[in-house]
Nucleic acid binder design. Structure first.
Lengths: 341, 341
DNA sequence: CTGAAAGCGCTTACAG
DNA sequence: CTGAAAGCGCTTACAG
């Protein structure tokens, strides 16, 4: 455990001089610098980041708390993409990423407040999009750097956030389905208490209305982002002449469940029924038939959020503003023209 | 930014007293405790974790560095599982997880040494299993808490590590294939410069030898854990009467590539050829035919590693010893009896 | 049980 | 350009 003063002693300078050569941003004569570096190398010195953090009041770290107990956590590609995006920009900016877990949506707030309050990170990325927990309100009270992944409630005008155009994207998917001749289209959302799912529902409704298509309430269902949720949705709504000819699912896992239910019933996709998922998970391309999916750029969303956050930290300002990124429908083999009727 | 002395002032006690009530492990009279707590609440005080870390010389954090630029990083379920496992135990023990990126195997060492050297974490989990980079040797020099995921070279007797029984597991899979009547069996490894891939190869060879089956060198190939790598392996070895009737792949992505190549050639699985993957990725169950896969308990491996690490940190000892966990072959639809002669 | 002091390992305004 | 000192916000051995 060698410190700055060991190096100073060996190099015959004051500890503050050693500090100066390591912090880099002060003028030091070339010979002292070299003496110090030599001494440091000989002693295998590396400055203690914690001590530095305490002194400069910055940790060079941003944090995220993930609901690690959520079942689909690593089945779904959402969090891996988020973490990958964050890692890219923290790495490039010489920041570190601190990851905390949480057991519930309420706990997510607790954990976030703790990381921020105890100053373990300079800023934080928050992913909660729950409607029943006022994450944003509780966090905005602290005036600490915070950027949201997902659009916050409208009343929080000052929050910084990055999101996909959920409403428009889903609308576009439904328009595409309508354009392929479908008239009975189902919307299988994830968790209805979630903002993104509400936005997508609205996109669905707008597209249906614009096409003058009546919506049978049975066509709207929720699968909570689970494979079996998609499966069950089909069980519930596939009967009689009101059975949908196309399904839009708010993630790929549910779309896979839908495909399974359809296969069990001997229904061929896309000849009889079309299915479109969301997120373009790695497996989408590998299924057969390969799954058409709305590719949401979560990796880029996370990277953008990290950029905004780190920039705000470095400028010493509170992050503001928002960015909306485009998603892209990847047409594969599970969607096509409507042949029924 | 309220500190311990603000609270002390308001509660009319010495700062050290405030510290004592928050650190918890010292005797404090009930009335002072309550006064302090009241003052703390009124001022919305949370102790600064960085200051505490500097003082007690512990960060309550463990770290891992992930090769975030590696292409398959989030296609494959390996890292999500690892992170999930680590998160479970860090959360339960009130530790935090620090994640660093790295751009190459050499950089992995650099990053690890930096995190450790600058004391940003109390210990670290290392996943490198490369044979051409002496990660372990460089790290063991520092005597800092370190546990490996994956068995280290034999010469490092003091390292702590957790791994699956790669050799035995693969041997068992090949025995299963042999038991189903296969005699021409292919081994499609990941990165040949990697220890786990070597171990699996040896398991394959042992099983073949034990069954008195000759190994055609063409049957041994490497797909570098990529989907296309599996595809190419089939292109290279599927010809003539020496074409394998069964493929074992060291991850599921390559198995999926193998299935694609076979499908293109109009070969039916498992009737004509059997395929077994590794890791039991989420998509394995969703493919059709569903992929048989060797389920390696990486989540549990990571959790075990974190346990050992945290325990060593708390005991103030250097972690030692190893744990080998069992994998399980999940038989699904891509493997079955050999029908070809 | 509580106070006063020294210390954890850095940084940086102030002199010179 | 370099030194000496004070400070970042805690903890904890030492007294009492």
């Amino acid at each position: 455990v060698t410190t700055i003063r060991d190096v100073a002693a060996r190099a015959n300078v004051h500890p503050s001089t050693v500090s100066r050569v390591f912090s880099g941003n002060e003028r030091i004569s070339d010979k002292t610098r070299q003496r110090v570096m030599a001494a440091a190398k000989a002693l295998n010195f590396q400055p203690n980041a914690i001590a530095r953090s305490l002194s400069v009041q910055r940790t060079q770290t941003i944090a995220i708390v993930v609901p690690h107990v959520y079942d689909g956590y690593f089945e779904d590609s959402f969090f891996p993409q988020i973490i990958s995006g964050l890692l890219n920009v923290t790495y490039a900016n010489k920041y570190r990423l601190l990851v905390g877990g949480c057991e519930s949506y309420q706990d997510e707030i607790t954990q976030t407040l703790e990381i921020l309050g105890t100053r373990q990170a300079d800023g934080i990325i928050v992913t909660s999009g729950r409607l029943d927990v006022d994450t944003v309100g509780e966090l905005l009270g602290q005036r600490t750097p915070l950027v949201l992944i997902g659009r916050p409630p409208n009343r929080y005008k000052t929050a910084a956030w990055v999101d996909a155009k959920n409403l428009e994207d889903t609308k576009r998917v439904v328009e595409y389905l309508v354009g392929s001749g479908h008239r009975k289209i189902a919307y299988v959302g994830g968790d209805p208490d979630t903002r993104v799912v509400k936005e997508r529902l609205e996109g669905y409704q707008q597209a249906m209305n614009a096409a003058h298509l009546a919506i049978n309430p049975e066509w709207i269902d929720y699968g909570y982002f689970a494979e079996d949720g998609g499966y069950q949705a089909v069980q519930r709504m596939h009967h009689g002449d009101q059975a949908p000819t196309a399904y839009y699912a708010a993630n790929d896992l549910m779309a896979i469940g839908i495909l399974r239910a359809l296969r069990e019933r001997g229904i061929s996709v896309p000849e009889e029924i079309s299915v479109v998922g969301t997120n373009n998970s790695p497996e989408a391309a590998h299924l057969s038939p390969a799954l058409s999916s709305l590719a949401v750029p979560y990796k880029k969303i996370a990277a953008t959020a990290a950029h905004i956050l780190i920039n705000a930290i470095q400028e010493g300002i509170v992050p503001t503003g928002y960015v909306l990124l485009d998603s892209e429908l990847v047409e594969r083999q599970t969607s096509g023209p409507c042949h029924s009727s």
